[in-house]
Write a protein that binds this DNA or RNA. Structure first.
Lengths: 205, 205
DNA sequence: TAGATTGTTAATCGATTAACAATC
DNA sequence: TAGATTGTTAATCGATTAACAATC
């Protein structure tokens, strides 16, 4: 049976919809519309309806969308109606900040380990974590069955870190190092390089 | 005279091209081709040629692109052939990591000030910075003529921070708080929310 | 009922790719 | 010269928007 492939660009918007719905819930709201969501996010109402319609019918004509219900559905679609364990590679300023970041746990992502290769750092504490030796990374991650990693090592070490993560069975990498990674098919990478974003904006200045 | 508007999506790729060219220079390379760049980045060669052709002719048939020359051109286009001063709002873990991040200076972005509203933090040091009082933010930024800011405050404070930055004359905001900001026309915002990226990847798991 | 809003279709718009003449 | 690679055009592909019947 022909499985419909949903455009990646649509998938990328769903977490943004979800985040906004969750804020609406916090505001005590119960119902919203494609129009309201669109205004809040700067998307067209038509686009939001189209995106959602890829996955089913979640609204009611004349009324709009029940926020709690739609949020639950989106969580299911994105597979974030469960918790995910995460590792951090690199215990510098950024890696440490990631390990301590409060914004992960309440959205279902739990940092479980943080690694570094610097013997000065290994064994020391960051918040509730003890920095582990990168040399043990593959076995530790495999043993824990962790599928998601964040790379926060220098650019020169990032590809090697990625290689090891892949060997350890990681399927999703959030890469903070300013380099493109090459990974096998089936492993996903997302990039966060603040300089890229800033250079995008300076163009318009 | 009809000024050609370059698609935003093209502008967004230029910094990635530039970054790769700069690595090639570090590797001692002199010349590259759209094909090689494409393979390295996972884009098609045609797309790279098309993107670049929006801005002029930078290559030579049969030979390819002189890396130094193309990098210089891209820097000019992106207006990063000069230095930019930046402020950080929020001196928590993330703001502190941003203030200390080494990856900015060597790409032309210089953090000049970091602000917080917590009286416990104001006046204390982060690296070479003394944390300034958010209450003085507008005047300090105006006086320094700074146009770029990074927001690293809790979600609940981000819109207010953005409002003040806009008042201070900031034109580009890199927002690490997990909320959509509403800003006047002429001010650009880029968003970095790691959870959004991770939720994008969990879909495929 | 009248008003609002969905889900969906068709039309439009925009971005990517294929192909190739030009030329180094 | 032969081979390589650009810049550009036209074709294709994909994404967004407009419009509206259905219906709450």
């Amino acid at each position: 049976m022909a499985q419909k492939i949903i455009p990646n660009i649509v998938i990328g918007r769903l977490p943004v919809y979800l985040r906004t719905l969750q804020y609406m819930l916090e505001e005590g709201r119960q119902v919203t519309s494609s129009q309201e969501l669109g205004e809040r996010l700067g998307f067209s109402a038509a686009q939001i309806r189209k995106d959602l319609s890829q996955f089913g019918e979640f609204g009611k004509q004349g009324t709009g969308y029940n926020i709690q219900y739609l949020a639950d559905q989106l969580q299911g679609i994105l597979k974030v109606n469960r918790d995910w364990d995460v590792v951090v590679v690199g215990a510098g300023d950024l890696g440490s900040a990631l390990a301590r970041y409060q914004g992960f746990a309440n959205r279902g992502f739990h940092v479980k380990m943080i690694f570094d290769s610097d013997s000065q750092k290994i064994g020391t504490e960051i918040g509730k974590f003890i920095i582990l030796d990168s040399a043990d990374m593959i076995t530790s991650i495999q043993a824990a069955g962790i599928r998601i990693a964040m790379i926060a090592v220098p650019a020169s070490d990032a590809q090697e870190a990625a290689n090891q993560l892949v060997k350890a069975g990681v399927k999703a990498i959030l890469n903070y190092a300013p380099v493109n990674l090459s990974v096998p098919h089936g492993v996903r990478v997302q990039y966060i390089d603040p300089v890229i974003h800033m250079q995008h904006m300076t163009y318009y200045n």
